[in-house]
Design a protein around this nucleic acid. Structure first.
Lengths: 181, 181
DNA sequence: ACCTGAACACCGTTCAAGT
DNA sequence: ACCTGAACACCGTTCAAGT
């Protein structure tokens, strides 16, 4: 972390607050100029701190992602089957804070150049780990792969942007089909 | 169908061909000006025939939707459980011809003013009918609702835009959780 | 009855000039 | 070291003028 001028640090804080509000209201595709205006800075200042939308999202998700990773680590101590289910639900719920975030995270996993790639890879690694435990305990059907779990998670996150209740029901059905009979 | 000047009819045909190619390549959000140019007409001509993107999509999907509805009607004669599963797979496959179509159809079902509403309502009605048959035959778990089925269908269609194979596997797992044990 | 394309609005992004 | 905001590019949409 380089030394920053105090006004610059304040501006970053105000930009993140404004971006959070805008992303909540209009999704991750929200216009950037109103965000800068709402933060009381010029549009160039926003670009000076965040070269693109993904960099802004990454900063915005920092704390939230760290909390999610901690949750994943804790779940690795719980009974394998329910722990995997709880993890999937937690990620799906997280990826629905902003409309369009599910797409952004799915893309970030594939694109190594994405500012979100590291975070996505970490989520993926936690999924692998929790799934491997569930397999070892015989809690999941043997044919279920890590990709299957990630796909379900993103699909549920995308659904959640339309209806949280329906996303939960989709998870109920799909998990019933994935967990051991 | 009002009488049309021959050149107007030709233009509509060329616009639909160009739009189909553009939607396939860049999804339903593809820029409209290149579509008009590719069709050899001015942008105003496109707007003259199709007041908005949904109207263009509706025209583009006409034949395809009619074929889908016919498929649904035929499936209503088949064994209820497999028929429902086949219908879900057919709709999911259809809604993935263009990127972004899954979202468009999901929105069209809720929005009565949408040019796509009628088509979406008909898909929904066919889903209801096939699900009711499956329930009557005891082929589906009793708690499965029509919304559950529509949600799964759209989620699978959305997934399909990224990976067809993963979408199929999602359907495998979710259907296993929805069909009677 | 239909077509043209200039015109306007809007937004993302850059960068020269300023402090 | 950071900020400003004009400038440019791009695209959706409208509409007066033309055939």
């Amino acid at each position: 972390m380089p030394a920053r001028r105090a006004d610059a640090r304040r501006n970053v804080g105000k930009l993140l607050d404004a971006a959070d509000a805008a992303f909540r209201d209009h999704g991750t595709g929200a216009p950037l100029e109103p965000i800068a205006r709402r933060a009381g800075v010029a549009i160039g200042t926003l670009y000076g701190h965040f070269p693109n939308r993904r960099a802004l999202a990454r900063a915005l998700l920092r704390e939230r992602h760290d909390a999610l990773f901690a949750r994943g680590d804790r779940l690795a101590e719980d009974p394998p089957g329910p722990a995997l289910a709880a993890w999937i639900r937690a990620v799906a719920e997280h990826a629905a804070v902003y409309g369009g975030l599910a797409e952004m995270l799915a893309a970030g996993l594939d694109d190594e150049a994405s500012e979100l790639h590291d975070d996505c890879a970490r989520m993926s690694a936690l999924t692998d780990r929790l799934l491997a435990r569930a397999h070892a305990a015989g809690a999941v059907r043997p044919e279920v792969t890590s990709s299957d779990v990630l796909t379900l998670t993103t699909a549920a996150a995308w659904t959640r942007a339309q209806s949280a209740a329906q996303a939960d029901r989709l998870l109920d059905h799909a998990l019933r089909g994935m967990l051991a009979p």
